[in-house]
Nucleic acid binder design. Structure first.
Length: 181
DNA sequence: CCCTGATTCGC
DNA sequence: GCGAATCAGG
């Protein structure tokens, strides 16, 4: 099987909905979960904002060398060591209930006031500021139904996907966009 | 062991 | 671009 437009659309949809790679692979058929993950990465939509527990720590654990299978000529060039940058990739831990007596508000009207402790399920998880900074926060406005972001940020998050599949001269862009919001 | 996503790299 | 092999974890 190959990655047709339709299958990519399905992949993106399921991935955004929080399905695991193996589940998506199973549903699509003809591909392994590795294929799905690889595609997800190439599409640049790795790191889901919505569900699950963060699997990776925020720091980069230094990649181990991989023993090349059976290829003789392979002079491994030293890669430039780039220091780990604070990444937004890791998913945001969503509290199921307040730890102390912190009332969780459904959403916040003023953008950028939600912290990791006050961020609720229905709040926009668009990051604001430097994650390593104390002032780091999330948008926190009411997220659009079923999405991690508010309408405004959802537009930004899922923007560059359409290349006019059918024949709409761009007039239907907003309509197509709604499928992702 | 089951599962998860992440990464590398030959193809 | 693709995805198997392999990794680090839950």
């Amino acid at each position: 099987m190959s990655w047709t437009d339709e299958r990519v659309e399905t992949l993106k949809k399921l991935w955004q909905e929080g399905h695991s790679a193996s589940q998506i692979a199973k549903q699509l058929g003809g591909v392994t979960r590795n294929a799905v993950i690889g595609k997800v990465h190439r599409l640049g939509l790795s790191g889901r904002a919505a569900p699950s527990q963060p699997t990776r720590p925020l720091y980069k654990p230094a990649r181990p060398p991989r023993p090349a299978a059976s290829t003789a000529s392979h002079a491994a060039p030293e890669r430039t060591v780039q220091h780990a940058q604070p990444s937004l990739r890791s998913s945001v831990p969503v509290l199921s209930r307040p730890v102390i007596s912190q009332p969780i508000v459904p959403y916040i009207e003023e953008p950028g006031t939600a912290t990791v402790l006050t961020l609720g399920a229905k709040m926009c998880k668009w990051p604001i500021g430097d994650p390593s900074s104390d002032s780091f926060s999330f948008c926190g406005r009411r997220s659009d139904d079923g999405t991690p972001y508010c309408v405004e940020h959802g537009r930004v998050a899922y923007q560059p996907s359409q290349k006019a599949k059918k024949r709409d001269g761009g007039a239907d862009l907003s309509r197509n966009l709604r499928r992702y919001l």
